[in-house]
Design a binder for these strands. Structure first.
Lengths: 170, 170
DNA sequence: CAATTAGTTCAAGTTTTTTTGAACTACGGG
DNA sequence: CCCGTAGTTCAAAAAAACTTGAACTAATTG
């Protein structure tokens, strides 16, 4: 665990004021990204802690349940936002954050953005089929035009992602 | 209102199959963006309807409450995603969607992204002050380094937005 | 102006999402 | 092997987000 020894912890949370603020910062951040609060808490604490922390540390320091911590860590690992700290002979696993933007953005895109883009594309094909069945000519043209537009939105989205990754990741 | 006359409406929703699918498509889309379902329903129906629709039309066709429709339309207007249709002498207001990506992306960035980036920046300054009070030298350096890193994340975010806007908006 | 209808507001209700915690599996050391 | 602890799972509880609907304001029209 290793609290930074230079700051007292508050009664309520078990965190130093700095830790509390940073955790709050990340809670807000993940909320914007549509991820659950606990992910922000966990990542935030790992981010501002000089040493890796174990699941139990997180439970104790953040005052969250083992279940939350376990699931939160799993998601963060999937996102590539935390890694196991290497080289602790102990039985329990310690975690450290990825602090480079690149893997964070990459993971978010891979896990949260791409799947939706992809499933969106296949839904569009179905949409087009339905629209194509419209018997009235003028209506059909209108519908197909709108669906084309959606198609072009998605294409642009797909083009933007690599650029995003390149700009954000180093 | 003006249902496209060439497709029967289903019992449950008052929408044609195509409308239903498109609405569903946008419901999923706004969910990814972290916006409420009703926004997707309203925008989706406006998007696929050849003519502008009034608040009452939306209530009737989508089966949502007047309150939802009113608030949903307000948010969509704020985002620049719908506009009042011009030139209907009627008392009630008719709405049409913005179908260009540019205002949509621009509005989303302006309303949903920028504010968080900005408030994030000011929170960082506070964070830095707290970290700077750390008496242990090594800890302080570590904390300040991490906060610097956050700073640089935010800066990159700020740089990316204009590029995003340029790429997506025409 | 009174009546009627368009639209807004917000407290209460509903739905969805997240968190909890207890039961479970799995591993490792004595 | 058996005990103790690390970590997972998932049904139920709690919290958060969204929607409803009734009371309201505002604006038009006969």
């Amino acid at each position: 665990m290793d609290l930074p020894s230079t700051q007292a912890e508050t009664e309520t949370t078990g965190l130093t004021p700095l830790q509390e603020q940073v955790v709050g910062y990340f809670v807000d951040l993940v909320r914007v990204l549509g991820l659950p609060r606990s992910l922000g808490e966990i990542y935030g604490l790992l981010f501002i802690n000089p040493d890796p922390l174990s699941l139990d540390d997180l439970v104790r320091l953040l005052g969250i349940s083992k279940g939350s911590a376990s699931q939160g860590l799993r998601t963060l690992r999937t996102l590539g936002a935390v890694k196991e700290a290497d080289g602790n002979g102990d039985r329990r696993t310690y975690y450290q954050p990825s602090v480079e933007l690149k893997p964070l953005v990459g993971g978010f895109i891979r896990e949260q953005v791409r799947p939706h883009l992809d499933s969106g594309k296949s839904k569009l094909r179905i949409l087009e089929e339905i629209a194509d069945k419209t018997s009235d000519h003028e209506d059909r043209e209108f519908f197909l035009d709108r669906i084309n537009r959606l198609d072009s939105w998605m294409k642009r989205g797909g083009q933007v992602l690599p650029v995003l990754k390149k700009m954000l990741g180093q």
